[in-house]
Design a protein around this nucleic acid. Structure first.
Lengths: 246, 246
DNA sequence: ACCGCCAACAATGCATACGCAAACGAATTT
DNA sequence: AAATTCGTTTGCGTATGCATTGTTGGCGGT
């Protein structure tokens, strides 16, 4: 069983402001280690390496056509991103996500994302540069009308990641993207099990309006309420679905 | 010029819940890579490797009595923690912290720490296990009376790290510790330049009271106001001090 | 038949070797 | 004199080899 292909595959999700080369513009010669990192991350997010899967360094090296050294470096990075665990004699294990993890992740998002909305609304010209978010909202509304869950999820992701990227705080953005990646599989899993996110879609639009209107507190509180509700929904869905998620 | 010795030297500050061995209880045979990571991190936080310093991998390997391989692994981890930058032909460079970085860091802390206080106050028995925080508050009050800035900073750190460790969300705790480490040098730098933190000390105590009383919203808002004020104070202090912080 | 111990194997962690590319310097030319 | 180009050196990225360590399976004893 494989999930939807990973959609953003962003710049590695590191939390520091300038990991190696932010914005792939200076994209000459991606080193073998970076390649390994990106490809392994894609495999994990796409569920081609399912949670709990164990692979030896040499297996992965063979599979990627590299030697163990760059693979090992990639694994260290993936471990720090919380996607895999390196276990001394059994290679790496893809980190499973349990309901408790989702609770943690949503607590973090519920804290950081409203802050990002607040920061965005507090800028000198709050309405500037919001085209991406507006487009994402529109895409969500269209996907909702077409009952296309996959397109809705993509637009949702575009909205959330766009918001934290625009907020001007790269550390915050990196942290959000990190937990976002960690929960990617779980979101894809629940995508087809929950009712059509009509309410969510409307709430996104209202947050965007508050940002454009330059009302930081209102944007923050709207977003917080949105996140709180949808997070609780998702966690209870996972709990009810009974999967211990390995 | 060296600062105060690094005080917590915690478990590596990784953001994922179980990096290698959380809680050094299973502390047998720290690998060479972990040693390198810890020692380099200590050197950076103690300002023995000052911001902007450039070292070649081979220099560090020689200095630590290791080969390049574990040093390289340590550098990759430190880079993901935002403490150093690996520049292709010039080794690593210790990441300097500018006023803009401090703004980012305080925005993150201002978001996550009040959330931690809220979570703590929301537990079934909010008053349980708060001894550490109470002790830290008392230590701050005593240090304030004795006008011992260094002891105050240590107690402050104990309070903040204790709070996020107790809140039950390891991802959140890891993120806070990460930016806390990034800003360690800056805090030590401003420690002797600002007035005695009498107000801060009292505010910590009030937050703790709100937590123990089981009032999540009040704890969160108190903490937010505290963080907001002290963060703004610190940023303006750094800006006024004129150091571009290299 | 079951439990415990020993030995062999396998994977890792680290050290080292090698090749490439970039940077620095020197020399020559304009 | 300044700039450009070529050569040399140096550091890094990757590969590979080796030793350590943990695991597993088999054998022997009770």
């Amino acid at each position: 069983m494989t999930f939807a292909p990973v959609c953003h595959l962003d710049q590695g999700g590191a939390v520091n402001p300038a990991p190696t080369s932010r914005h792939a513009e200076t994209s000459r010669a991606p080193s073998a280690a970076e390649q390994a990192h990106g490809r392994l991350k894609a495999l994990i997010l796409d569920n081609a390496l399912p949670p709990g899967a164990q692979r030896l360094e040499s297996e992965l090296a063979l599979q990627l056509g590299l030697s163990r050294t760059p693979v090992r470096e990639a694994l260290v990075r993936l471990q720090q991103e919380g996607l895999v665990e390196i276990t001394p004699r059994h290679g790496m294990r893809v980190q499973p996500i349990a309901a408790a993890d989702m609770r943690e992740i949503y607590e973090v998002l519920n804290s950081l994302e409203p802050t990002a909305a607040e920061l965005l609304a507090r800028r000198a010209d709050p309405a500037a540069g919001l085209e991406r978010l507006d487009a994402a909202c529109t895409a969500m509304e269209q996907a909702l009308a077409a009952q296309d869950r996959r397109a809705w999820a993509a637009a949702d992701e575009a909205f959330h990641l766009g918001l934290v990227e625009l907020c001007g705080n790269r550390r915050l953005a990196g942290m959000v993207m990190q937990v976002w990646d960690q929960s990617h599989r779980a979101r894809m899993f629940t995508l087809h099990q929950r009712p059509l996110p009509a309410r969510s879609t409307a709430e996104h639009r209202r947050v965007l309006d508050a940002i454009a209107a330059g009302e930081p507190e209102r944007a923050r509180d709207l977003y917080r309420r949105h996140r709180h509700r949808s997070g609780a929904e998702l966690v209870s869905l996972i709990e009810r679905s009974g999967v211990a998620w390995l």
